[in-house]
């Protein structure tokens, strides 16, 4: 059975036995090149669920406690390795009700960056399929081109160390081959930026953050961001960011987000993918996670019995003078 079939079978069983009231996965949107989150209520409808190289969405964002449409419902959900870490981060803080959850781990070999592929064409893409490391893209006008998948991976897949879910009730198919987690994580993307001079970094960041339009997409999609309407970025009392949008304010806005998710963000990449103006937020959260790893050898959301590092302390912490 393919992973897609496994997911459908597990969802069907869970829905028909009443283990869950609804099941969150992915489905095709208006053509095979588009995948969107799916909410399946009936066991007969599970065939809409898909698993392919476009299933990037971190579905755990729908679990945040304030999602009140169906407050007592039992929920089934698909999580990739990266998604499972945000799930664990939410569990570490008791923000999801584990009794009501049924978690299906989906082993993942890397996903394709649709946005990057779009830039290769002037025409609308209608189909994307992958097989044996090659991505075949077909456009509306019938043009088909092949690309090596390795060159068109999502940025988040480039730094992935958790191909299998760290927490799952059931797993859809055989596990993916795991990276050696005893090896130190690699941070070449961050190191490249660090290598620039202070002035260069300053100028680049200003240019990048000047384009932010404060649409809040990054904050809305982030699974560990749960303050919703009370978000301090919207607050007028105290006022940390003004509604007048300027580059400096935009950077403070993002740093508020970053510092509030510090220790809980596993760099799943959802924020990068959600940004309509393609701000590389990974520049910030990857740097943050690099420093957190350096300080504590801690990977957010990797182990359920750990405490997020900024919610606790050790008397022996040796920082500062």
């Amino acid at each position: 059975m393919s992973r897609q079939d496994e997911i459908r079978e597990l969802a069907r069983v869970a829905l028909s036995t009443g283990r869950v009231d609804y099941f969150i996965g992915w489905r095709e949107a208006y053509n095979p090149s588009e995948v969107v989150p799916a909410f399946v209520d009936e066991p007969d409808s599970v065939d809409q669920l898909v698993w392919n190289d476009l299933c990037a969405h971190n579905l755990t964002t729908f679990l945040k406690r304030k999602m009140n449409d169906r407050p007592n419902a039992k929920v089934g959900i698909c999580v990739k390795g990266c998604d499972s870490r945000t799930l664990v981060a939410l569990m570490q803080e008791n923000l999801v009700d584990r009794e009501r959850l049924y978690v299906v781990g989906v082993p993942c070999d890397g996903l394709v960056d649709r946005r990057k592929l779009e830039k290769e064409f002037s025409d609308e893409i209608i189909d994307i399929t992958t097989s044996n490391g090659t991505v075949s893209v077909t456009t509306h006008q019938g043009l088909t081109r092949d690309f090596p998948k390795a060159d068109y991976l999502l940025a988040a897949c480039g730094w992935c160390r958790y191909k299998n879910a760290v927490y799952a009730d059931d797993v859809a198919g055989p596990p993916a081959e795991e990276a050696d987690r005893h090896a130190k994580p690699v941070w070449t993307d961050v190191e490249a930026f660090e290598a620039l001079s202070d002035g260069e970094r300053d100028a680049m960041l200003e240019e990048i953050f000047a384009t932010c339009i404060r649409c809040f997409a990054c904050i809305n999609v982030c699974p560990v961001c749960y303050c919703w309407d009370q978000c301090v970025n919207r607050s007028r009392r105290p006022e940390l960011v003004s509604q007048k949008v300027d580059a400096k304010g935009n950077l403070v806005f993002q740093m508020v987000h970053m510092l509030h998710v510090a220790g809980r963000c596993p760099s799943c990449g959802a924020c990068d993918r959600a940004c309509p103006v393609e701000i590389p937020l990974s520049l910030l959260h990857r740097k943050m996670n690099k420093e957190i790893y350096d300080m504590f050898e801690f990977e957010p959301g990797a182990k359920l019995d750990e405490m997020p590092v900024f919610q606790c302390f050790k008397i022996e912490d040796a920082f500062g003078d």
Partner: peptide, 17 residues
């Protein structure tokens, strides 16, 4: 608590130029 937060902040500030 402050000690941990400021250590991270210091590293981020330098990164921000």
């Amino acid at each position: 608590y402050a000690r941990r937060k400021f250590e991270l902040l210091e590293r981020m500030l330098h990164y921000l130029g």
